[in-house]
């Protein structure tokens, strides 16, 4: 009897254990074939903990800002510190998880026509969302603080930088890059889409914003998925924020 090579299987495909030195299966009669050793597939990288940790750190930064304002801190200063803080946190998470972000920044996603379509869609989306917020203000007799009130005395240029340039860049990397990408490692597309969009809405810290920012999140997330790039959602996001500023500038 010859020694069985280590690559020879111990059991047949039909489930029978081979006899020592057997060349055939005693139950189904098939020939015993040596098998190539198969390396186990590498485990999928952890995603969900990254997404939750990133969201919690963002939330903590917002809480610190809220407490600072409550304790009498200047709203304007706090806002731009938080905006830059978000950027630092996002870069801090993006460096160890660069596989989630860098490939998406390496391609344009859409051709120029696609960006033109996004530009054309922007007023519709701003009108829908702003109309809703305005309606809510009327319903509850609330004076909506104008988007530009905080920047009064600082000029519209600063409002554009702090509202329409930095946040789209940072939030798209954070929500569409890190959170959506990390969730997608362990969850299905639809689940990652819904969770990352709601995380985007919750991070704006207002219950009414769930109704406005969750659809906006779906739209931006879909753009990221469709184009496999972060530039189209960044562009759409910047268009939206610019539209809100333009609306506020026009109405005051």
């Amino acid at each position: 009897m010859t020694a069985v090579a280590t690559t020879e299987p111990a059991t047949c495909a039909c489930g029978t254990t081979y006899k020592p030195g057997a060349a055939f299966c005693a139950r189904c009669g098939t020939r015993r074939q040596p098998v190539e050793p198969v390396a186990p597939p590498p485990p999928r990288a952890a995603g969900l903990p990254i997404a939750i940790a990133y969201y919690m750190v963002l939330l903590a930064a917002q809480v610190v800002a809220m407490v600072n304002i409550k304790l009498g801190g200047d709203v304007f200063t706090t806002t731009w510190v938080v905006t830059l803080g978000f950027a630092v946190i996002t870069i801090g998470f993006a460096i160890p998880n660069h596989a989630l972000v860098l490939p998406l920044l390496g391609r344009a996603g859409f051709r120029p026509l696609g960006y033109l379509v996004l530009l054309a869609l922007a007023p519709v989306i701003v009108a829908l969302i702003h109309g809703y917020v305005h309606g809510l203000g009327i319903l509850f007799d609330l004076d909506q603080p104008g988007e530009l009130d905080m920047y009064a005395g600082y000029g519209i240029g600063l409002a554009i930088v702090l509202d329409a340039v930095i946040p789209p860049f940072v939030e798209e990397i954070g929500f569409r890059g890190l959170i959506f990408g990390a969730l997608r490692r362990n969850l299905r597309f639809s689940e990652a889409l819904v969770i990352s969009s709601f995380a985007f809405a919750f991070a704006h810290l207002s219950v009414p914003s769930i109704l406005t920012h969750a659809p906006l999140g779906f739209y931006l997330c879909w753009l990221r998925y469709r184009s496999n790039s972060l530039w189209p959602p960044m562009f759409a996001h910047a268009c939206h924020n610019l539209g809100v500023i333009a609306w506020a500038a026009y109405s005051t």
Binding site: A23, F24, A26, R27, C28
Partner: peptide, 13 residues
């Protein structure tokens, strides 16, 4: 040598 359970010969099939 075969056992009563065998349906095929393990040596020659």
């Amino acid at each position: 040598a075969i056992t009563p359970d065998d349906k095929f010969c393990a040596a020659c099939g």
